[in-house]
C-alpha cells in the first residue's frame, strides 16, 4: 500500500527531527551553537513550585517551532528565561549563541511579544514604534507602515482606548518592525479575529522564509498546525514530546462529530478498529479515533444517512491522552 509506505517514511523523518528536541542526553554541544534559540536542560523553581523541569529546546534559523501546552504548563516561564527576565535554577538558555543577560546588545536582533502585552496606556502605537525604533538603532518607517496597514491597525490612538485585538496588533508590529533574526512570541494570536490571524501566520512564514528562527507558544493546536514545521509540547513543566507537525498529527487522537439524517443506533461504532470512544445522542455521534480514520468513516457511511462530518475538538487535553500513553511506551 503506497499510503502506508508514505506514512512510515514520514514517521522516520519525524523520529530523526525529534532527537534534536528531546530532553537531555541526546543533544551534542556542536548542535547547540548553530541554533538561534537553545535551551539546554533548563530547570526553574519558584520556591517549592517546579515550573520547568530539565527542558531542552532548540530552533534553527529559518525554522518555525510551535511551543504547545495547556495554560500554566511552563511555556511563559521558559520564554522569560530565554529573554533573560528569569534566571534558570539550573541549565542554560541562549539566543543567537549568547546569554541575553550578559549581552543585551543582541536584543537588537530579536523580536519579542509577551503573552500579556501591555504598554504605557497613554502612548499610541506610533509613539511606541518610534521609541523602540530609536532604542534599536533606527526606525524602519516603511516597514512599520506596511505592518500597520496589513494588520488594519489604527496606530494613532492611545493604548488605553484600544480593544484587546488592536492592542495585540501593536504588540505584533513592535515585534516584527525591525525584521529580527529571532522571533519569540508568547500566545501571539490571542484576541485576533480569524482574518488577522491569517495575516499574522503569513508574517510568520515570510519571516521564516528570510531565515528568521521563530518560537511561538500556543494552547491551541490548529494555529500551530498551520504555521509550524515542528512542535514541542510541554505539560507541567516537562517536555512531553517534540516532533514534526506531520508526525504529531499522525500519532495523536482526533475527534469527529458526525451528523445523520435519522437517529443513530447506539452500537454503530462498537468494535470498529481505531474508535476508542463514541458518544451517541439521537442524530449526532462524536467519536474519538486513534490511528487511521478509514474504518470509522466506513462505519459512518454505512450509518443512517450521513449528512456532515466536522472536527469536534481541537482540545489539547485530548491530544495529550494519546501522547502520554505513547510517550510511556517509548
Amino acid at each position: 500500500m503506497p499510503g502506508l509506505q508514505q506514512e512510515a517514511d514520514d514517521a522516520s523523518v519525524g523520529q530523526q527531527d525529534a532527537v534534536r528536541l528531546r530532553p537531555a542526553a541526546a543533544g551534542t554541544g556542536s548542535e547547540v551553537v548553530e541554533d538561534a534559540i537553545a535551551c539546554t536542560r533548563v530547570t526553574k523553581r519558584f520556591g517549592a513550585l517546579l515550573a520547568v523541569s530539565n527542558l531542552s529546546l532548540s530552533v534553527a534559523p529559518g525554522e518555525v517551532v510551535g511551543f504547545l501546552g495547556p495554560n500554566g504548563a511552563g511555556k511563559t516561564t521558559t520564554i522569560r528565561m530565554l529573554l533573560g527576565f528569569l534566571n534558570p535554577t539550573s541549565g542554560s538558555c541562549a539566543v543567537l549563541g549568547a546569554d541575553l543577560r550578559r549581552d543585551p546588545g543582541l536584543r537588537r536582533r530579536i523580536g519579542y511579544l509577551p503573552g500579556d502585552f501591555r504598554m504605557d496606556p497613554g502612548m499610541t502605537g506610533k509613539d511606541l514604534f518610534t521609541w523602540f525604533g530609536r532604542i534599536r538603532g533606527g526606525v524602519n518607517r516603511a516597514r512599520v507602515a506596511e505592518l500597520v496597514q496589513r494588520l488594519h491597525l489604527d496606530s494613532s490612538r492611545p493604548f488605553a482606548a484600544l480593544s484587546k485585538g488592536n492592542r495585540q496588533k501593536i504588540g505584533i508590529v513592535q515585534a516584527f518592525q525591525h525584521d529580527p533574526e529571532v522571533l519569540i512570541l508568547d500566545e501571539p494570536t490571542t484576541g485576533l479575529d480569524p482574518l488577522i490571524q491569517r495575516e499574522f501566520l503569513d508574517l510568520i512564514r515570510e519571516a521564516a522564509g528570510r531565515g528568521a528562527a521563530i518560537l511561538f507558544s500556543s494552547h491551541v493546536l490548529p494555529e500551530v498546525e498551520r504555521a509550524a514545521s515542528r512542535v514541542a509540547i510541554i505539560r507541567a513543566g516537562e517536555l512531553v514530546t517534540a516532533s514534526t507537525v506531520d508526525d504529531l498529527l499522525d500519532r495523536t487522537r482526533h475527534r469527529l462529530e458526525l451528523r445523520f439524517a435519522r437517529p443513530v443506533p447506539g452500537q454503530l461504532f462498537d468494535g470498529v478498529p481505531g474508535v476508542v470512544a463514541a458518544e451517541v445522542d439521537r442524530r449526532t455521534a462524536v467519536i474519538t479515533i486513534d490511528g487511521p480514520a478509514g474504518p470509522a468513516m466506513e462505519a459512518a457511511v454505512a450509518g443512517p444517512g450521513l449528512l456532515r462530518v466536522s472536527s469536534a475538538s481541537d482540545d489539547l487535553e485530548d491530544l495529550f491522552v494519546g501522547l502520554y500513553e505513547s510517550g510511556r511506551e517509548e
Partner: peptide
C-alpha cells in the same frame, strides 16, 4: 504593569 519587561526586550 508589565511594560518594563517589554522595554527590557530591547537592546538596553
Amino acid at each position: 504593569s508589565g511594560s518594563l519587561e517589554l522595554l527590557l526586550a530591547n537592546p538596553v
